[in-house]
Structure formats: C-alpha cells, structure tokens
Design a protein around this nucleic acid. Structure first.
Length: 576
RNA sequence: CGGGGUAUAGCGCAGUCUGGUAGCGCGCCUGCUUUGGGAGCAGGAUGUGGCAGGUUCAAAUCCUGUCGUCCCGACCA
C-alpha cells in the first residue's frame, strides 16, 4: 500500500475529550473518529487492525471446532420476554419499534437468539456438543461511555454459545475455550491473565475473565505471588485470620469526639491505629428483617465489597446504603458516630474486624466514640462473614503465597451458563433413552474492538503506538529519502517495495513528497513495527537502514538480503 | 440518575466579566524556495458563534429554555 493511496489521517493536536493513552492515540493516529458518544467510525488504518484481531479470533475458534453463524443484530422482544430479560435488562437495552409498533431491541448479547435457534435445529443428543459463534456488532446503552472504543456503546464482539447433553460435556468445551482464549491473546501479543470471576446467581461451576494488564484498566485483579491463583477483587476471598482476637488490655471508655465524623478524622485526631478502628455501615435489608436495616462492620482500613455484601442473607439486593434519616430513626445518631455497642440492629462483622481487640468505634450518640472495645466483653460478637475487598499482602485463598493487586482490562469472559436459558425457553433434545433432556449451555465472549484499545494501552511510548506485529496494520514501513529528486532512490525503493510484496510482507510505502521528519513521525505514531529507510547514503554501499519500532538505533543492512531478513523478523513475531 | 464543566473554522483555543457584528495556532488550498527528524516566504479559502426564545438601537457576549458533549460520583460513616 502506498501512502498516496492510503492517506494517514494523523493529528498533531488531540481532540480534548480523550483521556487515556489508547483513546488519544487512536484519534491522533487516525484509526477512529467519533460520531457521537460511544459511537466510532473505524477508518481504513484502524479497520486493518480490527480485522487482524478478528482473523486471529476466527482462526482459533475454527481450530477449536466452533461453527460460525451470523445472527440478526435486531431482535424481537418476544424472545427476551420468554427469557425474562425484557423486564430485567434495564436501560442498557436499546429498545426499538418498527412501523407496525412491534417491539425489538438492538442486541447487546445473543443468548435468546441462539437458544431459539438451538431448540429449533437440535433434536438429538447425537448433534451435541455443538459450539456456535459469531463476530458481530453489539449495542449496549452504557450509563457512561468513555475511553474511546474501550467502553463504547456500539462495539465488535465475538460471542460463542455451546450446547451440551450434560455438565461433563460443558466442562470439556469450557476448558477447551479457556485454552483457545489463551492462544488468541497470546497470538495478539498481549500480556494477559485468566482470572476467576463471579458466577453470579446463575450458578454453574465456572467463569473466567481474561484481562489485559494495564494501569488504566477498570478492574482490580488479585494474584498470588506463589501460585497461579488470580481473581477479580470483586470476587477474591479475604480469608479468615488464623489468630483469634488478642486479650483486652484495658477498659472501654466513652470519649467526646465532636469533630471526628470519619475514620480518617478519628485516626488523625485521637492517634488511633486505623486497624484498631471499626466502621459501621448501615444498609437496607430485605423483607426478612423486621428492623429494615442491617449493620455491616468493617475495620477502618478496609473497604466493603458490594458483591459479597448483597449476597448475605437479609441484605437487600442490589446493595443500598441507608439514608441519614433512616439511620437516625433507627439508631438515634447520625453516620459518623455509629458503632456495634448497644446497636439495636442486626449486625454482620467482617472476618478481620472480628479478631480486633481494644478497638474504637462510634458510640451511637452524636459526637461520641467508644475506645478500647472488645468483642465478647463489651458487645456480643455478631455473625461473621467475608465482607471486604482483599488488599495487597492478604494471604492467597488457595493457601499459597500472598496477594498482589494489579489493574486489568477485561477483554474476554467465558461462562458455564448451565440451563438458565434452555430451561426458560425449553431447549431440549432426546437423549440416548429417547427421553427429553434440557440442554446445558456455555457462553464465551471476546471484545474484539476492545482488544485493539487494550493492545495500545499496553504497547505505546512517547512517539505513539507500538503494535505487536501480529495485529499491526502494516508489518513494515518503507520510507524513501528524497525520492522525488533521486532517480536511484526511487528505483531502489520501487524494486524493494515490489520484492517485499512478492514475499508476502504487508508493507506501507511512504511515497509522499514529505519531509523526512514528517514521515518518521507519522510512521512512529501509527506504530508500524518495522521500518526501512532507502536513501542515497546507504545505496552507495548497497545498504538500507533498518529500525524496529522499539529500537533506539538504526542498523545498516545489505539491501540484497533485506527481504529475507524482514520475512524472518515478521514470521518470528507472528508465530506463523 | 446526582454534581460540575463546556459548546466560537477540520483540530486546539482566545474573545464573554465591561454588548458595537469574530480572532490566533495547527491543518487545508495556490505559487516559489526547501527536503536525513513535524520547513520558509507570499497569497488564499473556511464560521446561520449548538439550537430556540427573550432583553436591547445593537447579542458570541446579558436572561430563559433546550439539545449535544466531557469530567466526577453513584463505596461508606
């Protein structure tokens, strides 16, 4: 491809609304342009990258024996009503009406559609297992689209759905998909981790997210230092401390704390160690609790984990913090002065907080705290549960090593669905005894467009994008020096271009009549992994100048063997 | 959904307080000179000032409404 036919729509200045590196660079490099909030046009250069990721995904899914289909993006409401999700999905589901006032939605996912297909097409256990996939545009009306293609409303997704006669078969396909995903992200040149994820209310025995590690990631991931344990912080278990609470060392006393409404203020003003403070969070309870509210007790330096909390018996789902009015009505004191002693509400205490001794907490009277509180002596120990987010240094739940926390971008998610949809939609087959059996399902997603953003997030520098070769829009940039002036340079460049193309190299020939600085800057910005410069200087010695995108120096290489050299570089990088 | 910004040329921005009919940089077009790290000179094009009302002799500027868009929050005692 020649830049004269393939304009580089690069920008020196960035549109002001780009926050993170990938978004900025995608705009500056001209990969995408915004149409509206969360909606982007992929320009030719960006689309080449998207298609490369797509191709890798497709090749690996095919290799795993999955079958490609293409389902409609627009879906009739009836199927969603059947699964119950027309009601439950909420505002993220973009709903439409056709000219006959029939209701549809723009698909955010395709469980209903594939389940409908399966119940119509699959009759016998002999047709199982089967794994369908598609690569298609999805729409989710995100509360707050941001970060360019990372959290767009319209995005490209590979979604797959498998159908099985039993759980064992599902587990086998699930494991295979796990391995396939590893191959895909490996091939894309990404530093990623499979991470145990929330299985939610659906049940089933497994779910993994695949995260690309990057500081700008929206999710926090906990890893073991010693084992391959990895879990989303949302899910990672904070294991119970082995040691029991130490014995009390002093009496409980009531202290006036008029200016301490937060744990931070309490620690600051009264010199209390933060790990010897307990905070009391009041949340709304479900119908089973007469008081209407429940108190959750955590150490002052720990954070409540909302997902863990809303699974507790008695706690309303979704988790909802009580209002100040509700708290005053129930306790007689405001937030900032709450504590477990003489609290007339059901309480649940976090495992770590349950082994605190001589701790301080609110006295349930405005402006007063109790210091030197001890469980058992001053207040009965309530029910104990895991309520908090794990923190760096916590023991790993598998008993090996401690946890470190890193940030990740979720690019894939695999899920053992079980029979949630097949039950709701009566997707059955006949088993070997001629009996009707509800199929068991798995589903497997990859955010194809998000992978592009995540790759940039992980691979960029001052100059711009640094593509992994496997997903780069071009493998090599050919930059001639003063080609308009020098016949010799032109001939050499044209010949090299032809030879490279003949060798199957994806080469971008910068044949613009631009200054060298402009060409170099553009090629670096758009992240082409390899660059060759042809100029009078080198030709005198029969050489060209090579530079890898990550290199800091040029290398002079003989023009003769250059095609072989680059072919080798490329094939090593893409593992072909 | 709550709070806060912002809306002026393709992009980045100034002008708004103190009303007088729009400007800078980059980019774009033409010509000449230039060409090994984002060139120089000369000339040129581009704006219903988000939209709708209102106040005024006069509105980018003041007032009201509205749409878009961005950020923060929706996790805490």
């Amino acid at each position: 491809m020649r830049t004269s036919n393939f304009p580089l729509q690069t920008l020196k200045e960035v549109p002001a609304d780009a926050e993170i590196a990938s978004h900025r660079l995608m705009l500056r490099a001209g990969l995408i342009r915004k149409l509206a909030a969360g909606l982007y046009t992929w320009q030719p250069l960006g689309l080449r990258v998207l298609r490369k990721v797509e191709r890798i995904v497709r090749e690996e899914m095919d290799r795993a024996g999955a079958l490609e289909v293409l389902m409609p993006a627009v879906q009739p409401a009836e199927l969603w009503e059947e699964s119950g999700r027309w009601e439950k999905y909420g505002a993220e589901l973009l709903r439409l009406k056709d000219r006959h006032q029939r209701e549809f939605c723009f698909g955010p996912t395709h469980e209903e559609i594939i389940t409908d297909l399966a119940r119509n097409e699959l009759r016998s256990y002999r047709q199982l297992p089967i794994n369908y996939y598609q690569i298609q545009t999805k729409f989710r009306d995100e509360i707050r689209p941001r970060f360019g293609v990372m959290r767009a409303r319209e995005f490209l997704m590979k979604d797959a759905y498998s159908f099985h006669i039993d759980q064992d078969s599902l587990a086998a396909t699930y494991d295979q998909m796990h391995a396939t995903y590893c191959r895909i992200f490996e091939r894309c040149g990404l530093d990623y981790r499979p991470v145990a994820a929330d299985t939610g209310s659906i049940g089933g025995s497994g779910s993994h997210e695949f995260h690309v590690l990057a500081d700008s990631g929206e999710d926090a991931i906990a890893f073991s230092t010693e084992s391959d344990y990895a879990a989303n912080v949302e899910l990672a278990e904070a294991v119970a401390p082995a040691a029991a609470a130490p014995a009390p060392t002093g009496d409980m006393r009531l202290v006036d704390t008029p200016d301490a409404r937060t744990i931070a203020e309490l620690v600051e003003q009264f010199d209390q160690p933060i790990e010897k403070t307990i905070k009391t969070l009041i949340v709304v309870a479900d119908d089973s609790v007469d008081a209407g509210l429940i108190a959750l007790l955590l150490r002052g330096d720990h954070e409540l984990n909302a997902i863990k909390a809303e699974k507790l018996p008695g706690v309303a789902e979704p988790l909802q913090m009580a209002s100040e009015e509700q708290i005053r009505a129930a306790v007689g004191a405001g937030p900032g002065s709450l504590g477990p002693v003489d609290l007339a509400l059901p309480m649940i205490v976090d495992r770590a907080a349950a082994v605190c001794s001589d701790f301080s907490a609110g006295a349930n009277t405005d402006g007063k705290h109790l210091f030197g509180i001890n469980w058992g002596r001053d207040v009965a120990l309530p029910d104990v549960a895991d309520l908090r987010n794990v923190v760096e240094g916590d023991p790993s739940p598998d008993g090996r090593g401690t946890l470190t926390i890193a940030r990740g971008i979720e690019v894939g998610h695999i899920f053992q669905l079980g029979r949630k949809y097949s039950d709701a939609m009566q997707a059955t087959v006949l088993d070997e005894n001629g009996k009707q059996v509800t199929m068991t399902m798995g589903c497997y997603g990859i955010g194809v467009s998000r992978v592009v953003g995540a790759a940039i997030e992980q691979h960029n520098d001052e100059q711009g994008i640094v593509w992994p070769t496997a997903i780069a829009p071009f493998q090599l940039a050919l930059v001639p020096m003063q080609m308009k002036k020098s016949e010799r340079v032109r001939d050499a460049a044209e010949k090299l271009y032809a030879d490279l193309q003949a060798a199957g190299i994806e080469v971008l020939f910068d044949d613009r009549d631009a200054r060298p600085g402009v060409m170099f800057a553009d090629i670096e910005l758009i992240g082409i992994p390899h660059r060759v410069v042809v100029g009078e200087r080198g030709l005198d010695k029969g050489e060209v100048e090579y530079r890898g995108r990550r290199d800091s120096e040029n290398r002079m290489l003989p023009l003769d063997g250059f095609v072989d050299f680059i072919r080798q570089q490329v094939s090593e990088a893409i593992g072909a």
